[in-house]
Design a protein around this nucleic acid. Sequence first.
DNA 1: TATGAATGAGCGTTCATTCAT
DNA 2: CATGAATGAACGCTCATTCAT
Lengths: 199, 199, 199, 199
Amino acid sequence: MLNVTLELFATKGYHATKVSDIVSKAGVAQGTFYWYFKNKEEIALQIIEEGKRQLLEVIHQGYRKDQGCINDMIQSSKRLMHNLLTFASENRNLMLFLFLKGQGADLKIRNAISETLFEMEVNFSKNIYRAIELGMLEDRDYVPLQAQMLTNMITGLIARWQFGPLYDWDYTPTVPINVVVDEIVHFEFFGLLLSGGRR
Amino acid sequence: MLNVTLELFATKGYHATKVSDIVSKAGVAQGTFYWYFKNKEEIALQIIEEGKRQLLEVIHQGYRKDQGCINDMIQSSKRLMHNLLTFASENRNLMLFLFLKGQGADLKIRNAISETLFEMEVNFSKNIYRAIELGMLEDRDYVPLQAQMLTNMITGLIARWQFGPLYDWDYTPTVPINVVVDEIVHFEFFGLLLSGGRR
Amino acid sequence: MLNVTLELFATKGYHATKVSDIVSKAGVAQGTFYWYFKNKEEIALQIIEEGKRQLLEVIHQGYRKDQGCINDMIQSSKRLMHNLLTFASENRNLMLFLFLKGQGADLKIRNAISETLFEMEVNFSKNIYRAIELGMLEDRDYVPLQAQMLTNMITGLIARWQFGPLYDWDYTPTVPINVVVDEIVHFEFFGLLLSGGRR
Amino acid sequence: MLNVTLELFATKGYHATKVSDIVSKAGVAQGTFYWYFKNKEEIALQIIEEGKRQLLEVIHQGYRKDQGCINDMIQSSKRLMHNLLTFASENRNLMLFLFLKGQGADLKIRNAISETLFEMEVNFSKNIYRAIELGMLEDRDYVPLQAQMLTNMITGLIARWQFGPLYDWDYTPTVPINVVVDEIVHFEFFGLLLSGGRR
DNA sequence: TATGAATGAGCGTTCATTCAT
DNA sequence: CATGAATGAACGCTCATTCAT
């Protein structure tokens, strides 16, 4: 039922998705829904929770562990972005819901989503701090701000890349995944690396 | 009525805003709403239309017109970003609605918003192409992709800067506007400029 | 305004006709309507009143005055029916409203219409009684019942003849007026005349 | 719910009957209505459909099957009319809705009703043609027109007989059913039979 | 576990009517 | 005489939720 619901949330949006839509698509009766979930809000929260877990797992795997040269850093970033975009390709509905449609839902759900995005940010921050610790980047102020920019750039780009300017579910990406990875990492690299000790 | 409605849309979201909320906040009767607007959807579309107009006007004013050195380009970018962030500060509700909450509304509204963001992108693209023409930037592929990244970075940053990680209307920015401008332009500068002839 | 309103009542029906339809078709402002008429009901009642006057005038002109033979009676009936059908052709909207659509309006209006039809009946009754007085018809019971049947036959036929089986305003009669007159009078003649002294 | 609704439609008319009237009279909640019917229009259409079925069944049973003399034809007509009037007595609300109030409803409903009346006409036409085939009546033009007159006469008479000149639901018929049957059949007999070969 | 009929609060919208100008 | 903006009661309909089976 989670997958079915996520698909509906992603395409129609939270409010426009009726519980009756969910159950009819899932092939069960209306009442059955309420055996599995307390209410409509809860299924959304579960979806977000599970999505967050997977998303952070992907990001976590790209975490820099060893010291290395600039090139190692770039390679590591590329690997992370590649994993992220691959995950995005395999979880289109999740991306659409988390990065776009979700903000139209009710407060509690919006907050759960915001929290997810914030944790992404935190991980990017950690990544940057780690790179500084490892001596790969010079120390700087405003690491969180830079992590924000990265997050926005990445989530926004994933949405636009996958769904086009009108955020259409049936859109087919026109740019190969490698190009997107390169562009992001390029921005990231120059944005972060060359900012040097600016503080 | 437009301002009152925008505020409600921005804080509660489109669906959670009842027409009765709008009219009671505006101090008129329920029926009066329908004298001025065909229905709830139309007022949203009008708000978006007007917001788009203003937003694009701000962006257009930052359009590069004269050739210049690298420094001119940076200054011009800073001026544009400063205008944009100032406009954002003075139109918090519009930002919240366009960049976040709006995607939870119905198809027609979402499309109108997407179109607005897309036109921002197009303007950034034009800006980049213009800089190439003027010899300020080397020629490159994927200008639209870079414009997308810029747009995402900027809109996302505006939202996060103004409303914090939980997108809370009562949040107060913790980072001074100049720092944000510097960071954005830094990213933009290195991202775009130093990408050189990579194609 | 009366004509405009009658046309709308006849085509759309009483309830489906909005005061705003009337005034926009009449080319005046909404408020003006209420200078001429107390409310929507009143204009309907005025229309019915005026229609009744005209209708009864037509019927009254066909009233038998002089004694005569059977043939005189048939000729007189034919003349009456011809006048009635001619009037109907020239007052399609009135027919449609009185004989069909009107019964869907509110109580007071329905009663005004019923009264109109009843007065038609009364006149037919008088006509029959007069013919009996003049010795053109034998005396009989149930004259009112026969008058009812005549009325129903005539009003129904007028509606069906002018507007077809679906009561469509744009329908064009397929049967010439003389044929209709002949058929009605034939029915009337044999129905009334030959019923002889049956009592 | 169908019976309850028919009663309300027949007494108050379609537009004046609120869904809340229906459900409160039926003793269920507002929402329950929409579990059984798509909307208010649909229940009207179902009522008409069912009414048509029953009405045509009654008429069909009176269909002439065997050849016979004039008297057989009259007897057969009387039986049909008697059945029809008996059915009408037992389905007062249906009569009131189909023959009077229904024409005030919206287009789709009006058309469904018109269709019902038209099928009555068609059946009467068939009956006449069958009588011609059987040699009980001479051939003639304008059979459909005569069927129309019959239908109008009969439906109108049923309405007036049952509900009086003001079409009042609480009216009690003042004329015994047999008299009405006799009068109708008399009109029909002389109207149809004696019209001979007039063409 | 699972069903699906039943609920009812709440919403968007309509439209006859009013009234200051 | 005429306007048209403003009113607000009332309606049809939706849909998340409940509960007897």
